[in-house]
């Protein structure tokens, strides 16, 4: 029967989860959770928070799978999963914002490009990549939250613990820098 589940993509697994199929849900967890865990750990250095966010996210998937299966637009189940997880992560930061600062995962400073990176370099485009790496770390954090993770200005400000105005001005500075790199 495992062989049967192997044939399905993630979207089909979510649809089956919506009908209460526990094995489809377990398969979905097995396939996506390592990816989600790694991605979350790159955004929050506290493993307890990451574990909470993961658990809340997959419980939401289990209970609300019908919401995805029922939506008219055929979206990507993995994108849907990330949207839930990103919102839960922002919630976790919001909950604890008053008590303690959660440790942000440290941004890695640009190192000497390794051999593997040279292969990737052709993809992003040399100028753009260089411009990205030359951006100050706080600008890159804002770009990552807004461009890669799809968060709003308000959610970004909660995640990074900076005021909304600062997020906006950093996003503007990052946009200008990238535009200049492309021109």
């Amino acid at each position: 029967m495992r062989r049967g589940l192997d044939a399905f993509d993630e979207e089909e697994l979510v649809r089956r989860t919506a009908r209460g199929d526990r094995r489809a849900f377990d398969e979905f967890y097995r396939r996506t959770s390592p990816w989600l865990a790694v991605r979350l750990r790159r955004r929050c250095a506290d493993d307890d928070v990451v574990a909470d966010v993961l658990q809340e996210t997959y419980l939401a998937v289990w209970r609300a799978a019908g919401g995805f299966a029922g939506s008219a637009v055929a979206g990507s189940a993995v994108g849907w999963l990330w949207t839930i997880a990103a919102n839960r992560l922002v919630d976790a930061f919001r909950r604890r914002a008053r008590h303690a600062r959660l440790p942000q995962a440290a941004l890695v400073e640009p190192a000497m490009p390794a051999a593997e990176d040279e292969v990737l370099a052709g993809r992003v485009g040399q100028e753009l990549e260089r411009a990205l790496l030359e951006l100050p770390p706080e600008l890159r954090q804002v770009l990552r939250a807004m461009v890669l993770d799809g968060l709003t200005v308000r959610e970004t400000s909660l995640l990074l613990s900076v005021p909304e105005g600062t997020v906006k001005s950093r996003a503007r500075r990052a946009r200008i820098a990238l535009r200049e790199a492309l021109s």
Partner: peptide, 30 residues
Amino acid sequence: YAGGDGLDDATVWSVEVHLETCADCRARLA
């Protein structure tokens, strides 16, 4: 990427964008 070390941001970003759309690479990550 899985180990959380050593890659610069541009690489990390393109890996993350790719992983979101590629089930095979997610399996390799696992």
